[in-house]
Design a protein around this nucleic acid. Sequence first.
RNA 1: AAAGCGAAUCAGAUGAUCGCGCAUGCUUUUUAGCAUGGGAGGAAAGUCCGAGCUCCACAGGGCAGAGCGCUGGGUAACGCCCAGUGGGGGUGACCCUAAGGAAAGUGCCACAGAAAACAUACCGCCUAAGCAGUCUGAUUCAGGUUGCCGGUAAGGGUGAAAAGGUGCGGUAAGAGCGCACCAGCAGGGGAGGUGACUCGCCUGGCUUGGUAAACCCCGCUCGGAGCAAGACCAAAUAGAGGGGCGUUUGCAGGACUGCCCGUUCGAGGCCCCUGGGUAGGUCGCAUGAGGUGUCGGGUAACCGGCAUCCCAGAUAAAUGAUCAUCGCCCGGACAGUAAAUGUCUGGGAACAGAACUCGGCUUAUGAUUCGCUUUAGCU
RNA 2: UGGGGCGUCGACAAAUGGCAAGUCACGGGUUUUUGGAGCCCGCAUUUGGAGGUUCGAGUCCUCCCGCCCCAG
Length: 117
Amino acid sequence: MPNRGFPKSSRVTAKKEYQSIYQTGNKVVYRCVVLYFKPNQSDRVRLGISVSKKIGNAVVRNQQKRLLREVFRLNRHRYRPGYDLVCVARKPILKLNFEQLTEQLEKALTRAGLINL
RNA sequence: AAAGCGAAUCAGAUGAUCGCGCAUGCUUUUUAGCAUGGGAGGAAAGUCCGAGCUCCACAGGGCAGAGCGCUGGGUAACGCCCAGUGGGGGUGACCCUAAGGAAAGUGCCACAGAAAACAUACCGCCUAAGCAGUCUGAUUCAGGUUGCCGGUAAGGGUGAAAAGGUGCGGUAAGAGCGCACCAGCAGGGGAGGUGACUCGCCUGGCUUGGUAAACCCCGCUCGGAGCAAGACCAAAUAGAGGGGCGUUUGCAGGACUGCCCGUUCGAGGCCCCUGGGUAGGUCGCAUGAGGUGUCGGGUAACCGGCAUCCCAGAUAAAUGAUCAUCGCCCGGACAGUAAAUGUCUGGGAACAGAACUCGGCUUAUGAUUCGCUUUAGCU
RNA sequence: UGGGGCGUCGACAAAUGGCAAGUCACGGGUUUUUGGAGCCCGCAUUUGGAGGUUCGAGUCCUCCCGCCCCAG
């Protein structure tokens, strides 16, 4: 049984960490999503999500965050450990459903070289 | 049936799998794991008002400033709500209403118009005493007519608004000049109502433009800031205070040199303690002007008694994803004369996310139910 | 959370409560062999939206919508 949980220790929480990832990490840009990534000191993958006010109102933003989190949660066991990720949503993400979003994120992670085979 | 008016209710349900955050219990060095419980709204929204709570300020009073403004009631309070009064809109159900004062003062009222506020006189109407011109008759005079002077504001025209309206009398023409009715004002007293006010009576002078969401006057209310309030714990670094080491036995560091020794300048150094305080964390923080039921008071808003319940608490910020079944709405096909209904199939399900907590307001929005109005048709 | 400002033609931008200026752009004409420049003419009907006050509202009042800025 792979680890399906998504506890707090698997998230990027502090503002400083976000800034560090934005400034010193690498990034992959797609139409619907921008992925920043940076090695961390631990042996787990951590995720941070950023959805700006341009995307929509509070309900829409929460919905997108939950979807991104769900995609991460269900595929987490396949990702290479020891990295911090930050997902920044862009406006076209609103047109995607769950499967399309999974596919997009898979592509981005493959290009970043963070998928285990 | 169509169009409309008012009020109320709900915000799909159940189950499965995988997750999230909180509380409690157990395991546990923390992390973490397991079990149980409960986990968004009618607007959680906008942040437009009012309060609680916290800190700061504070003898008392005034000015300034801001807000409010028909009456009575409700409330912790309100700019909110309820019940009424006056005014306005609609055929109507019903809706709207910042609704004190213009006779305390100031300002403004474009264009048009004679005149826009101590009234005035453009076109007019009237008059013929006086002055001037002119016509007819004529002897110096008489009569007519025009202008000035004088009287007047009926009619016309302008404007959003023109100094009460209509009628009769009156007059040279007219005019509240007089009278009647109506509107409005001031004063008096009567009936009803807690009151705003309503109904009707008498007397008076005949009459007073609009605008205060222009300045203003009158009456009432208001100390300021906000949970990032505020309280507590508190690392690293720098600095502050105190003590110790040390100045004769010379610490850190520097100079003489490429380096060591040595010489020399040197308390600016090292260690410990204290309090302030930053990052970070804990509390504030979920028992409340609380919910539900019932009984009573009140037209109602609301209030009171009794019983019962504990019902979100995050902080890069939980309340989700996938699937199944049922229910709702819309469309299509088939069965059915049609309707009702049944079967199959496709689609849809709004606005919107707690962030210290309440009471309102405003705005967004999907359905359903009930009552009522107008119009048309049938009985 | 508290405070402040803005919204007028496609762009910029003015307007005491009394006919919504002006510049650029755009369209048409004129001039020129053609183009440019110049000259002439045209171009706001919802002054972000909805109500209200007023005879009359871009302006005054109330409530919304959008954008921007400041403090912590």
